[in-house]
C-alpha cells in the first residue's frame, strides 16, 4: 500500500521519536516555534529533493561511491535553500544561522536516502520524503512549543500571539540545552509508557 510510505514517517517510524535521527538540529533550533517551522520547511525541501533525485538515478550510482554521490546531491540542495532563504526571508535566515548549512549532516536526510530512496522507486521515495519531513516537523514543533511557552512565558508564531501570557516568571533553563534534553526525555517517556501499556493488553 503506497500511502503507508507517507504515514509511516509521521507516526510509526517517526524520525525523531522512533528512529532518533536529526537530534542535533532538533536540540539547537527548538527554542522557538517559528524557528522550528522554518527549519522543518528547509528539511522538507532538501529531503524530498534528495530522495527524488537519488531514486531517479539509483541504478547509475556505483555502490562504491554512493555516499559521496548522496552528499554532493544533499549539499547542493542545502546550498540552494541557504541562498534563497538569505535573499528572500533574511530574518528567518539570520535566526536559523549555522543550522541551515548543517542540514547537510542531518542524519535524517542521509539516512532516508541510503536506507530508502537508493532502493525504491521515485513515487515511494517522494512519499517517504514528505512523510519523514512531516514527522520531523511534528516532533520539533512539539518540543519547541513546550520550550517557548516555558522559557518566554508566551508563544508568538510569526508575530501572532498564540498564547499571550502563560507565566510571569519564565524558566530560562528551558531555553538552554538542558531544557531541550528534558523536553525530549519527557515526551519519549510518555510515548514509551503508552507503547508498553499497549503491548501488555
Amino acid at each position: 500500500m503506497k500511502l503507508d510510505e507517507l504515514t509511516k514517517g509521521v507516526f510509526k517510524y517517526n524520525p525523531i521519536f522512533y528512529l532518533m535521527l536529526g537530534l542535533c538540529p532538533l536540540l539547537a533550533v527548538s527554542t522557538r516555534v517559528d524557528n522550528a517551522l522554518g527549519m522543518s520547511l528547509g528539511v522538507l525541501f532538501v529531503l524530498v529533493g534528495s530522495n527524488v533525485i537519488i531514486s531517479l538515478f539509483r541504478q547509475w550510482i556505483p555502490p562504491e561511491v554512493r555516499i559521496p554521490c548522496f552528499i554532493v546531491v544533499i549539499a547542493s540542495f542545502v546550498t540552494i535553500v541557504d541562498l534563497f532563504m538569505h535573499g528572500y526571508v533574511p530574518e528567518l535566515h539570520e535566526r536559523l544561522g549555522i543550522y541551515i548549512p548543517l542540514i547537510v549532516v542531518n542524519c535524517i536526510i542521509l539516512g532516508r536516502v541510503e536506507a530508502f530512496a537508493s532502493k525504491k522507486p521515485v513515487s515511494h521515495s517522494l512519499l517517504d520524503g514528505i512523510g519523514m519531513s512531516i514527522g520531523f516537523m511534528l516532533g520539533i514543533v512539539a518540543i519547541a512549543s513546550v520550550r517557548e511557552v516555558l522559557s518566554t512565558g508566551a508563544m508568538t508564531i510569526f508575530g501572532y500571539a498564540i498564547i499571550p501570557i502563560f507565566t510571569e516568571t519564565p524558566a530560562t533553563v528551558m531555553l538552554l540545552p538542558p531544557g531541550a534534553f528534558l523536553t525530549i526525555a519527557i515526551i519519549m517517556a510518555l510515548i514509551n509508557y503508552k507503547n508498553i501499556r499497549k503491548e501488555r493488553k
Binding site: 538515478f57 550510482i61 561511491v65 554521490c69 540552494i80 541562498l83 538569505h86 535573499g87 528572500y88
Partner: peptide
Amino acid sequence: ISIPLILICIVSGATLTVSNDMTKGRIEEV
C-alpha cells in the same frame, strides 16, 4: 566508478552557479 560521480559533481556545480546568480542581487540588497 568515477564517471557517475564526476557527472553528479558537474551537474550540481552548474545548478549552484545558476542559483547563486539568481540570488546574488537580492542577497547583496539584503
